[in-house]
């Protein structure tokens, strides 16, 4: 069910893949310890318990190609987890809230990413600005649109995928004042990264997304007038999951779609920004 995000396996056999995997994991540990710039192929070889020559046999271009493989693997894992969360959601609002929270959990909880953002931010940020941001948006649109198209016409599903990607990236790179930085492990406040991400998603989705999605829902090409018409962000219509597997729960019996929407916005979170 995660075939949306996982690229076809390389044809070089299990043994080769496991060697590559070992090197990638060793590289990841080294990056988390010393950063990308200071990690050498020797460091990676030593950590993986293999010779330098073996590393080069798997990755003839050395460190840069290992870095690419690390990024690929992290990205695939990210989308695998996201796909699981998204597939388990039974409505658009839930999908968006859980998906964005999951994305923030992964990004804020990734220790290597946190290390790099602190010590070599350019290694991370170059992937999140200008042309690379374009590529990332295009990738997310491709991966996420099929899930969103269960509830929206494909054009709006694609728009929403891009929109959510931008918001996730922006708030992950620089959390807004009204929520503050994600808690680091063992922080004094006792708040967990999961709670932080949930809080962020629970504020952002109802505030900025839902009013617009209410107008979009229904999948027609024309914008419905604001605030009009039936709203069914949960369990609407007769969706068909992108992977052909059914099993989502449609509208709960006896529950009008309007009733399952939050009628009020979170009352406090967005107020914490001091005026001026």
């Amino acid at each position: 069910m995660t075939d949306v995000a996982v690229p076809p396996a390389r044809d070089s056999g299990t043994e080769r893949r496991s060697l590559e995997g070992r090197i990638v994991e060793a590289a990841l540990r080294c990056f988390g310890r010393w950063g990308v710039t200071k990690t050498t192929v020797d460091d990676i070889a030593r950590d993986a318990g293999i010779s330098r020559a073996t590393v080069y046999r798997a990755f003839p271009n050395g460190r840069d190609s290992i870095l690419d493989a690390v990024v690929d693997r992290q990205r695939d894992q990210f989308f695998d987890t996201l796909a699981r969360v998204v597939t388990a959601s039974s409505g658009l609002e839930e999908l968006l809230t859980n998906g964005m929270s999951q994305a923030w959990r992964e990004l804020a909880g990734d220790e290597v990413l946190a290390f790099l953002l602190e010590h070599e931010p350019e290694v991370v940020l170059r992937n999140l600005a200008f042309e690379r941001l374009e590529s990332l948006i295009a990738l997310c649109r491709e991966v996420l649109t099929p899930y969103l198209a269960q509830w929206l016409c494909s054009e709006r599903a694609s728009r929403l995928a891009e929109w959510a990607t931008r918001v996730v990236v922006s708030y992950a790179v620089a959390p807004p004042d009204w929520i503050g930085a994600p808690p680091s492990s063992g922080s004094a406040s006792g708040e967990t990264i999961e709670e932080w991400a949930d809080e962020l998603a629970a504020a952002v989705v109802p505030t900025f997304f839902l009013p617009v999605l209410r107008c979009w829902e229904g999948g027609s090409g024309e914008d419905a007038p604001r605030g009009s018409g039936a709203i069914a962000l949960r369990g609407a219509g007769e969706p068909s999951p992108p992977d052909g597997q059914g099993g989502r729960v449609p509208t709960e019996p006896g529950t009008a779609p309007n009733d399952v929407l939050p009628v009020s916005y979170p009352q406090t979170t967005l107020h914490e920004v001091p005026h001026g």
Binding site: A138, L270, H275
Partner: peptide, 27 residues
């Protein structure tokens, strides 16, 4: 603005969207 959102928080969201789109217009 919706009751729950202060003007700076609203401006923060709009600023992020502007920055994101002028860096990478996407679709």
């Amino acid at each position: 603005l919706p009751e729950s959102v202060s003007a700076p928080a609203a401006a923060d969201y709009v600023a992020r969207m502007i920055l994101s789109h002028i860096m990478a217009p996407g679709s």
